[in-house]
Simulated assay, not measured.
Amino acid sequence: MSIQRIGVGPRMSKAVVHGDTVYLAGQVADKAAGKSVAEQTSDILGIIDSLLAEAGTDKTKLLMVNIWLADMATFAEMNGVWDKWIVAGATPGRATVEAKLAAPQFTVEIAVIAAK
């Protein structure tokens, strides 16, 4: 089976497609770094939409999502954006945990696995 890599960098690829499965690396806010959790979540979900489209799939095919929050007190704020984005009836498995992220301007990181 072939492997397709999208957004290849020196340490990681933004997405990897193997067979009918798409793996996205943890995504952080590009444009909304340092802004509110809601703004960062919205930015990240837009990035995820774009990467999934480039890989030939979309959010209706999500299998698993991992979300890291710098502060679990922002869980409801993140979910407010998530709930408007996710497709009813196509909700993935999901885990959300509090973690120290790579840089202080990032308060949310999201990684997904999707089917094609």
Score class of each variant (00 low, 15 high):
A29Y: 01
A95I: 08
V22C: 07
L63H: 11
M72Y: 05
P10V: 15
A70F: 00
G93I: 09
F75M: 08
W68M: 11
A114Y: 01
T74S: 12
R11Y: 14
W85Y: 11
A25H: 11
V108K: 00
K31W: 13
F106N: 08
M64R: 14
D43F: 00
G26W: 02
V65N: 01
Q27Y: 00
Q105P: 03
D20F: 08
D43G: 03
K31D: 13
L62Q: 03
P92G: 06
T60S: 15
A90Q: 12
A70Y: 01
S2C: 08
L63S: 14
A73H: 06
D71T: 00
A111I: 03
D20A: 14
N79W: 09
G34R: 10
V65M: 11
A15E: 02
G56Y: 08
I110Q: 01
G93C: 10
I110K: 00
K14E: 15
K100C: 07
W82T: 06
A102M: 11
G80S: 12
A99K: 10
T74Q: 13
K100R: 13
G34S: 08
G7R: 10
Q105Y: 10
G19T: 07
I86V: 14
E98V: 10
S36Y: 03
A90C: 14
H18C: 15
L101H: 07
G89D: 07
D49H: 04
I48K: 01
T21D: 11
K59N: 09
K35G: 08
M12Q: 12
G56I: 07
M72C: 01
M72K: 10
L69P: 00
N79Q: 13
I86A: 13
A114I: 00
Y23S: 05
Q105N: 14
V37D: 00
M78P: 02
G93Q: 12
L62S: 04
D30Q: 12
M78W: 13
I47N: 02
L52K: 00
A32W: 02
K116H: 09
G9K: 07
T91I: 13
A95G: 06
T91N: 08
I3C: 14
Q105D: 12
I110F: 00
A29P: 02
V108E: 00
L63W: 06
A29D: 03
E109R: 12
V16K: 09
E98I: 09
D20I: 05
G46C: 03
V17Y: 06
L63I: 15
A103Y: 14
Q4F: 15
Q105L: 10
G80D: 12
V112S: 02
L45E: 02
I86M: 15
M64T: 13
I47Y: 01
A114S: 07
A53F: 07
V65F: 03
Q40F: 04
K61T: 03
F75C: 06
T21G: 05
T91E: 09
